[in-house]
Amino acid sequence: MTEQKEDDVCQPGELVTDNRFKRQWVKLKRNKAALAGGMLIIVYVLSAFFAPVIFPGNPSAPNLIKSLETPSVENLLGTDELGRSILGRIIYGSRISLLIAVGVVSVGMILGIPLGLVSGYYGGKIDFIIQRITDTMLAFPGFLLALALVAVLGVGLRNTVISIGISMVPLYIRLVRGCVLSVRAEDYVEAAKAVGTRDIAILIRHILPNVMVPITVQTSLSMGMAILFAAGLGFLGIGVQPPTPEWGAMLGSARSYLFNAPHVATFPGIAIFLAVLSFNLLGDGLRDALDPRFRI
């Protein structure tokens, strides 16, 4: 017998606990990387929430005497060209980044989920139209799409969120549609139709709850992507505008001092890197934990 066949012989594994949440939690706990990602996200959220407590004072107020100082006890991560504490700006920046992340996935979900549901459930002409639009949007690299939208809408926090959010919509549509196609074929959806349930109720009561798992995973990954995109826009100077402390913008303005004060660029860079990494690690971990096919 070949190796592959031995893998088929896993049915008794089904015996492991029937309690879905317990199983998922244990699986997530065993995934150290996901756990680390989750912890880091909690740290970011806490620092965003308690920013004024951790860093009293205005992170945007210039103090030119202390311009471009290297890390010291007073300023743990040094100061930027206007003498502002980099640590303070990173802490306040996490507020902006998380706000953008949440805003972006909200836009993506609010538009993407209903379109995906309708597209997958009804099929036919409406599906064709939605899918061709999605194809067109996906033909652009996501960042380029966001960039183009900013060019149309203009700069600022709100427009950043909308632009990046819209660039996420096709991802949600694709994902939701795919899941709906498989759930729609389940007998319980047929059963609901057979007992005379209206389509809208079938979509909301039966289909949506059963596609939430991949949506959750996608949301975690999208948040990481949103932070990266926002930082990219900020870096190019067309995202959130100074003096608001935003990681990408910090990176952008630090560009000129890369040689004489490398720490000014390094720390915001690390902040972005870790935030994106944690969301991705958590997303991957969630995928493995929530997918019943991955057993422990």
């Binding site: 007998d187 059963a191 349930t197 209206r198 109720a201």
Partner: peptide, 27 residues
Amino acid sequence: QIIFQDPFSSLDPRMNVGQIIAEPIRN
């Protein structure tokens, strides 16, 4: 009405028994 073959896929895993049986009545 209809009764399905697969007792696993014919019941929505996210609904409890009360909700499942009540669905046609509520409809």
